[in-house]
């Protein structure tokens, strides 16, 4: 009975959307990168950097949207670095991506210490407030922006010439080249914009979900997004569904811990639940998916 009560409570659904928002931004970012043929394992670090950059910008006096823009810019910068390594230089996308994650995390830590040398606990800012709009009024405007991002990503990828070129770059870059389009520029652009979205996803944590910055706050969400892209079969709508599902599990387990059932079981079990269920869903859903054929394949003009 308690389980049912959880599922029909408005706060549960509000929590689902709140937990899903950063995942939605970052998943769309990763999806754009991978559709163009570049795996971006820098996502975890870029989210950390975005969370910090947005927060410190607002702390320094910028408006909240300014913070989001700064986070996006930080993401673009790391994305360009990842793109430089993997697109024109053609390095291993795995290695470069993990390197970006380590670099972005360390650089954030460094910047934090430089900016705030003497504080023991990070200062708080005034974050985005609930809109109070009719349906799900407890959400901030950033959540609505996340949902809009899904629609825009879908539109661009499937309804515009640019999207067609990006998807083709991830399927067969030689075909793109043969049509006189610049493969490297397309891929670099996709990685830059995708990384920007990842960073915005990170900044949601500091500018909307919470009002301060902690290092552990991204906590593996980047890796979850990598899985969500696969789960979503590289389609924005299905990836959104995956993000909501994961967030649903997460919100559910927190509430489950407070029930009589939760009292009898170790809480770590509940923490692991969304991940376990995600793995399960991944296995079921991704059997027959069409991976972008040129994902992780560098393209060099004049080579076969």
């Amino acid at each position: 009975m308690e389980l049912f009560d959880i599922l029909v409570s408005a706060t549960f659904w509000a929590a689902v959307l709140r937990i899903a928002s950063p995942l939605i931004f970052a998943t769309m970012g990763e999806l754009i990168c991978e559709r163009a043929g570049v795996l971006n394992l820098g996502i975890e670090g870029i989210m950390v950097a975005g969370a910090f950059a947005g927060w410190i910008a607002v702390y320094a006096g910028l408006p909240l949207w300014g913070g989001v823009a700064v986070a996006f810019g930080a993401g673009v910068a790391f994305g360009l670095l990842h793109g430089l390594l993997t697109v024109p230089l053609g390095l291993s996308q795995h290695v470069a991506g993990i390197g970006i994650t380590m670099l972005a995390t360390a650089a954030t830590y460094f910047a934090y210490r430089v900016a705030l040398p003497e504080v023991s606990s990070p200062p708080k800012i005034t974050a985005f407030q609930p809109t109070g709009w009719a349906v799900l009024g407890s959400q901030t405007v950033l959540t609505w922006a996340a949902l809009a991002t899904v629609a825009v990503t879908g539109w661009v990828l499937w309804r515009t010439p640019l999207g067609l070129a990006l998807r083709a770059a991830g399927e067969n870059p030689a075909a793109v080249e043969a049509q006189g389009l610049p493969v490297h520029a397309l891929r670099m652009g996709a990685v830059a914009v995708g990384s920007g979205l990842m960073a915005v996803g990170g900044s949601f944590l500091t500018l909307s979900a919470f009002n301060s910055f902690f290092f552990e706050m991204v906590n593996g969400r980047g890796w979850v997004c990598i899985a969500l892209v696969v789960f979503g079969a590289w389609r924005p709508g299905r990836a959104l569904l995956g993000a909501l599902l994961f967030a649903g599990f997460d919100a559910f387990q927190i509430r489950l811990q407070q029930t009589s059932l939760g009292a009898g079981l170790p809480y770590q079990l509940f923490l692991a639940m969304p991940y376990l269920l995600s793995v399960l869903a991944l296995v079921v859903m991704s059997r027959r998916t069409e991976v972008p054929a040129a994902l992780m394949t560098p393209y060099n003009k004049g080579e076969r």
């Binding site: 309804r159 010439p161 067609l164 793109v176 049509q179 389009l181």
Partner: peptide, 11 residues
């Protein structure tokens, strides 16, 4: 692929 300006809104 590549027959229309990249930044047009419709395909």
């Amino acid at each position: 692929l590549g027959t229309r300006p990249l930044f047009s809104l419709r395909a």
